[in-house]
Amino acid sequence: MKHLELVELWNSAHTAWAADQPLPDELEAWRASYSGKGKSAIDKAAMPEPWVGDLASKPVAVTMGIHPGVADPAFQHREGAWPNTIQDQHDGSYADWAATGPYFGDVWESAHGVNVHSGHRMRFLSAWTGKDLMPSQVVDFTVYPWHAADWKTNAFKLDPEVLREYVLEPIASTGATWAFGFGKDWWELIEALDLPILDRLGDGGRPYPTQVDHRRWLVAEGPDGLRIAAMRMDSMPIPPTKEETEDLRRVLESGPAGENRKRNMSIELESDLAARLREMDMSYMNITRLMLAIDDVELAVDSWQADEKDDGVALVYRDDVVVTIQPEWADFMTEAPAGTSVSPGTEGNHRLPLPPAATGPAKTTRKVTKEPKPLGMCPECFNVLNPDGSCPMECGE
């Protein structure tokens, strides 16, 4: 389904909902995919919200949520502020109302305060696109458009064809090439729908310069070239900072989910090598700098092995060692490795030069730590702080 067809469908569906009339059969089947009872049941008095934002803005990327959350009767119930606004100011058009970016406006924020959730997503999409997006340009779809006060994941059984026809195909039709979901529900949904997996970043996958070691990404293939990236964390799934988002785009678009440029290492080799480097206590940031340096000099690598002293890693191409990585390199603190060129080493080998560590060799065992329960609140962005007083959005302490 094209996004303009989706607009027509939901405009008519909203008119039916406002008059307390049955929805079209295909939407009733969609609504029936969630079977929560009692406090977890659908709020039938609340308006469904399949997306917010302007679909005509030709977004480069969109965000996605599983469901719209608990409803505020003063806004989302029949005779509430939003249905009245849709009828009085937009001639009954749900799409025209959604295109105004209503959750960033004074009407909503005067009752609920600054919309931190939507603000995070706007900053993330602005960093991804490299543009200062207006609220109407922040397009956010939901997989299940109906409100529920206490959402139960195990009560949701979505038909893959429903997701494709009513969510993913319309997203691709807008011109978006990337769609982002945040939280383990999205990760699990992608795996449950058996979508083709294109890439994995973070622990268990390719490294990228994240400042949160437990941030992980799963990238799947959707219709018409759409790339679906799901992020999960051990704590609140807050989108990364501007700088990390820019690095994330570079890593994703230089991989199998992006421009499909010729790579100097296979995805499997890169993931396996990253796991070995983590055992040497090399940070994700430094592992990524190393990988980018190898790519920058177009150095071919087809395997890795323990070096002669069994305390480092030797990168190999056609049985020749081309780069050696020592534990003392694990903590180098430069903007990027010094390896902008490859210089000949002894006996015909080549070395990618990196600075030595300032504090000596790192341990060679992997550290496994349990993520502490976050406490406190940041006075700048109002997110829950980590126990050490640091803000997950890096606003400060």
Score class of each variant (00 low, 15 high):
Ala99Met: 11
Tyr94Leu: 10
Gly38Ala: 11
Ala149His: 13
Pro374Ile: 03
Ala220Pro: 04
Leu189Tyr: 01
Asp140Cys: 06
Leu354Arg: 14
Val62Pro: 05
Ser110Lys: 14
Gly202Met: 01
Pro145Tyr: 02
Gly396Ser: 05
Pro196Ser: 06
Tyr284Lys: 08
Asn11Gln: 09
Asn383Ala: 09
Tyr208Asp: 03
Ser271His: 02
Ala275Arg: 15
Leu9Thr: 10
Lys373Arg: 11
Leu201Cys: 07
Ala300Met: 06
Glu371His: 13
Ala300His: 11
Glu394Thr: 04
Ala46Thr: 06
Asp203Pro: 04
Pro170Trp: 01
Ala111Glu: 10
Trp82Lys: 11
Trp186Gln: 08
Asn84Tyr: 00
Pro387Asn: 04
Gly183Trp: 00
Val368Lys: 12
Asp307Phe: 03
Asp307Lys: 03
Pro24Lys: 06
His3Met: 09
Val212Asn: 15
Val114Phe: 04
Asp224Arg: 11
Val321Asp: 08
Cys378His: 00
Cys391Met: 01
Tyr166Pro: 05
Asp203Met: 09
Phe382His: 06
Met236His: 12
Glu191His: 07
Leu4Tyr: 10
Asn84His: 15
Leu226Glu: 06
Arg232Thr: 12
Trp51Met: 09
Asp159Phe: 02
Leu158Ala: 15
Phe141Cys: 02
Arg366Pro: 00
Asp331Arg: 12
Gly348Asp: 01
Leu375Phe: 06
Ala41Asp: 07
Arg215Gln: 09
Gln21Ser: 13
Leu299Pro: 04
His112Asp: 01
Val219Leu: 09
Ala148Asn: 08
Glu165Pro: 04
Trp304Thr: 02
Gly255Thr: 04
Ala95His: 08
Arg278Trp: 02
Cys378Gly: 02
Asp106Trp: 13
Gly183Gln: 03
Ala45Trp: 01
Leu299Gly: 00
Leu198Asn: 07
Leu9Gly: 10
Gly38Arg: 04
Asn11Leu: 12
Tyr166Cys: 04
Asp72Thr: 11
Pro361Phe: 07
Leu292His: 08
Thr174Phe: 06
Asn286Lys: 00
Trp151Arg: 08
Lys242Gly: 11
Thr15Asp: 12
Asn154Tyr: 14
Glu26Ala: 10
Val139Phe: 05
Asp311Arg: 08
Gly255His: 07
Gly376Ser: 09
Asp106Lys: 14
Pro59Gly: 03
Pro48Asn: 07
Leu315Trp: 09
Glu191Val: 13
Ala155Arg: 15
Arg232Cys: 03
Pro50His: 09
Pro50Leu: 10
Asp159Tyr: 01
Arg78Ile: 10
Gly65Asp: 06
Thr359Asp: 14
Leu218Glu: 05
Arg250Asp: 13
Gly376His: 00
Ala111Trp: 01
Pro239Trp: 12
Asn286Gln: 08
Asp185Trp: 12
Ile325Glu: 01
Leu226Asp: 10
Gly183Pro: 01
Ile171Cys: 06
Met280Pro: 01
Glu188Ala: 14
Arg215Leu: 15
Ala56Val: 01
Ser235Lys: 13
Leu269Cys: 00
Met280Gly: 07
Asp72Asn: 13
Pro68Arg: 03
Leu299Met: 14
Gly183Asn: 02
Lys157Asn: 15
Gly225Pro: 08
Thr346Asn: 14
Thr100Val: 05
Arg318Cys: 03
Ala32Thr: 03
Glu394Asn: 09
Phe75Tyr: 13
Arg121Lys: 11
Thr153Val: 06
Ala19Lys: 12
Lys367Met: 07
Ser33Glu: 15
Gly119His: 02
Leu248Val: 04
Ser341Thr: 15
Asp203Cys: 10
Gly38Pro: 03
Val143Cys: 14
